[in-house]
């Protein structure tokens, strides 16, 4: 059986917000180390991988590996019934077809209980090779959100170029072109810092609508990492205290 007690429903809500527009159904793979989810969007262009560590829960018990097939729209509805600071317990029996969610109010005696149907999901799991990336850019997640949102007003694609100068995001639209250069900052310790580690110059083009989707994870984590090598998928990584959310996005290539 699974019993996982989270300090705050808000963490789950934010996670769901960050994946629900990419993926409709997904298996939450539970084992003694924690909960993992890996799912591709319908068009097989983007993949999201989530990990929640067992140690990050107030209490965590999972006797044997079990997949929980979840419709994310349904889970979003059930989570809307929780206050952000409710203590939240997820429970499922072995071979169960329901997930039980209990919300305990922090400062009152309210206890709410919901049961959600689970489903069988055949998912295509991809083996992601360990990759040495040629460039790693670390920046405030809010800045990343802003730049992809701004440029998505102009065009469909963005070229991300990493050089010693900094990282440049450029988009060409029918009515307007735009480019944003973010220079490396001197103080690595500053939470607003932009750091660039680079073996070679990298230039890749991506669909902005996916990046705008990924950037919703900014609510989970103040920093984001972009990992890039020429001609391989981009990795956008948000590491928060209790785990991570990582997105992979296939590059576009010129005709």
């Amino acid at each position: 059986m699974l019993e996982a007690k989270l300090a705050e429903a808000g963490t789950l809500k934010k996670l769901l917000d960050a994946i629900k527009e990419l993926v409709t159904d997904a298996n939450f793979e539970c084992n003694e180390e924690g909960i993992n989810l890996q799912a591709m969007d319908n068009s097989h262009v983007a993949l999201v991988a989530v990990h929640l560590e067992a140690a990050g829960f107030k209490r965590y018990r999972c006797d044997r590996p079990m997949p929980l097939g979840v419709n994310l729209t349904s889970l979003t509805k059930v989570l809307k019934c929780a206050k952000d600071d409710d203590i939240t317990t997820l429970k499922a029996a072995d071979e169960a077809d329901v997930l039980n969610l209990v919300y305990e109010a922090k400062n009152s005696d309210r206890i709410a209980e919901y049961d959600m149907k689970l489903m069988d999901i055949d998912s295509d799991t991809l083996g992601i090779p360990d990759t040495e990336y040629d460039a790693r850019v670390t920046m405030p997640s809010a800045e990343f959100t802003r730049v992809v949102r701004d440029l998505s007003q102009l065009g469909e694609s963005v070229r991300i170029e990493v050089s010693k100068e900094g990282v440049r995001f450029a988009s060409e639209g029918e009515a307007a072109n735009g480019s944003v250069l973010m220079k490396q900052t001197d103080d690595d310790e500053d939470t607003q810092a932009i750091t660039i580690e680079m073996n070679q110059h990298v230039s890749l083009t991506f669909s902005l609508k996916y990046l705008v989707n990924f950037s919703k994870s900014a609510s989970l984590c103040p920093r984001v990492q972009l990992m890039m090598s020429n001609d391989v998928p981009l990795l956008v990584a948000y590491d928060f205290g209790q785990g991570y959310i990582r997105y992979y996005l296939a590059p576009k290539i010129g005709d």
Binding site: S43, V45, D124, T125, G127, S207, P233, A250, K252, D255
Partner: peptide, 14 residues
């Protein structure tokens, strides 16, 4: 102008 690659072109299916 651009062709969109798929992830399955890069990562192997398990």
């Amino acid at each position: 102008k651009f062709k969109q690659n798929k992830l399955t072109d890069f990562f192997r299916q398990k």
